[in-house]
């Protein structure tokens, strides 16, 4: 971005066509600490647009903390977060969301006492700046909102339960609704934080299909404890332990990586 800014407009145009597009997500020397513990310790990586990356690692590896840093729920003590080349390190959560970032939460985070329908309407309304500020028309009468909302609910099989309160849904349905809300804003980057957590084996299988059916152009980062799910979904697997990235590579490579095996079987970094 800074390199091409000195070029003339015309040359920049042709240059940007040849130059690789900026990565969807780029983190650079990112660190955050809770008390004395470095939850994320000097982490650097790029995720190209359209990639599906699984982030795996034992509990306490810093995976969710990393998501919170990318999403803006946490601020790093050092380092930079870029989305499509834009430095968003100091932007707030809603600003990053408007830049095309959506996420689900490890612990289901929905508008619990509202209906499924209201949840999706609000999620769709979030992407229309004029609608977000409207205070004289009923939200449920805006065709520009109800149309996409109905389509989402039909696509994801929640149409028949649209009038139910979220708190009345089965847990598996709530996990799907998490993804539906994230998708409603038509994000370019989606962070899924353990979508199969707490689901039965069978439900987790369906959830994997759900995740696999996401649009291809979407850049997907997924935290997953279930190795089968992670390896099935991802183009690239990134292994984390104790706040650092141990290894990054294709699923087949990662499965053979000694360090990764050590992280899962024994102490994370050999001695300690």
């Amino acid at each position: 971005m800074s390199a091409s800014s000195s070029d003339s407009g015309r040359r920049r145009d042709s240059a940007s066509r040849k130059a690789p597009a900026p990565p969807a997500v780029a983190v650079e020397r990112l660190s955050v600490a809770f008390g004395g513990l470095r939850a994320v310790d000097d982490v650097t990586f790029d995720v190209p647009a359209g990639q599906r990356r699984a982030i795996i690692g034992p509990n306490g590896a810093g995976k969710t903390t990393l998501f919170n840093l990318i999403g803006g729920q946490l601020r790093p003590i050092t380092g930079v977060v870029r989305l499509f080349g834009d430095d968003v390190t100091h932007r707030r959560v809603h600003q990053r969301a408007r830049a095309g970032l959506a996420r689900t939460f490890q612990i289901t985070n929905l508008l619990t006492e509202l209906s499924v329908w209201d949840n999706v309407l609000l999620a769709v309304a979030a992407r229309h700046a004029p609608v977000r500020r409207l205070f004289w028309n009923a939200l449920s009468r805006l065709d520009s909102v109800t149309g996409p909302a109905a389509e989402l609910l039909r696509t994801w099989g929640l149409w028949t339960v649209r009038d139910h309160r979220v708190s009345e849904l089965a847990y598996g349905q709530q996990r799907v609704l998490e993804i539906v809300l994230a998708l409603a804003a038509q994000p370019r980057i989606l962070l899924l934080d353990e979508p199969t957590a707490g689901l039965s084996k069978e439900e987790a299988g369906r959830m994997t299909e759900v995740a696999a059916a996401l649009p291809g152009e979407l850049t997907l980062l997924i935290i997953e404890h279930d190795m089968e799910v992670a390896f099935a979904l991802a183009d690239v697997v990134q292994v984390m332990a104790e706040g650092v990235v141990l290894a990054t590579g294709a699923p087949a490579e990662i499965q053979r990586n000694d360090e990764v095996i050590a992280a899962y079987l024994g102490g994370a970094r050999g001695d300690a």
Partner: peptide
């Protein structure tokens, strides 16, 4: 609530492209 606990998505997988 008599629908499958994890509904079958009807979204297509089409349109996935790798760089």
């Amino acid at each position: 609530v008599d629908v499958p606990v994890i509904p079958e998505p009807t979204a297509s997988r089409s349109g996935r492209s790798h760089e």
